[in-house]
């Protein structure tokens, strides 16, 4: 767990450390089991291509979860995220190899609210393309 960020230490424009998370097919299987989302587009190329996808894609909720992890690791407490929302844009295609895909999370404090809360706007990309839009979290800092 990282040290807690204090509200007094942040201002509009404060940037979160950039995080890069690898996502492999094994990660998709693990997330499917943990979340109960067994949709085969997240593990079967046959099914994924039959519905017009280029191949197996990551669960949108896995991408959202990874971006949330970047925020809670920065804030120092997962309970600090009091609101969190995303729009799923482009899918993260995960090739069937040892390296998989990468999800890159950048964040910036966009607004300072009351009661030690700040709004963090996130930019989440994979292969240079934005995969989430309107991704923002309200974080309560100590």
């Amino acid at each position: 767990m990282s040290a807690r960020v204090r509200a007094a230490d942040v201002a509009v424009g404060t940037e979160l450390p950039e995080r890069v998370y690898p996502v492999t097919r094994a990660d998709l299987v693990r997330y499917a089991g943990a979340s109960g989302d067994l949709n085969p587009i997240h593990w079967s190329d046959r099914v994924a291509t039959s519905v017009g996808l280029p191949g197996v894609i990551a669960h949108g909720m896995l991408t959202m979860g990874l971006a949330g992890r970047a925020v809670s690791d920065w804030a120092g407490d997962p309970a600090a995220l009091v609101e969190y929302q995303v729009r799923f844009g482009r899918p993260v295609v995960v090739p069937d190899d040892d390296t998989g895909a990468e999800v890159t999370v950048r964040g910036r404090v966009a607004a300072v609210l009351d009661e030690g809360r700040v709004r963090v706007d996130l930019t989440v990309t994979s292969g240079g393309e934005k995969v989430l839009s309107l991704a923002r979290a309200v974080v309560r800092l100590s």
Partner: peptide, 28 residues
């Protein structure tokens, strides 16, 4: 499954030290 090893998810004592009654779940 999110690759997190934050002890507040895993270790009751760490969660209590952070002010939670038990281990807490990730936000999603």
């Amino acid at each position: 499954a999110l690759g997190s090893s934050d002890p507040v998810h895993l270790d009751v004592e760490a969660a209590r030290a952070a002010g939670h009654p038990d281990v807490v779940a990730p936000p999603t």
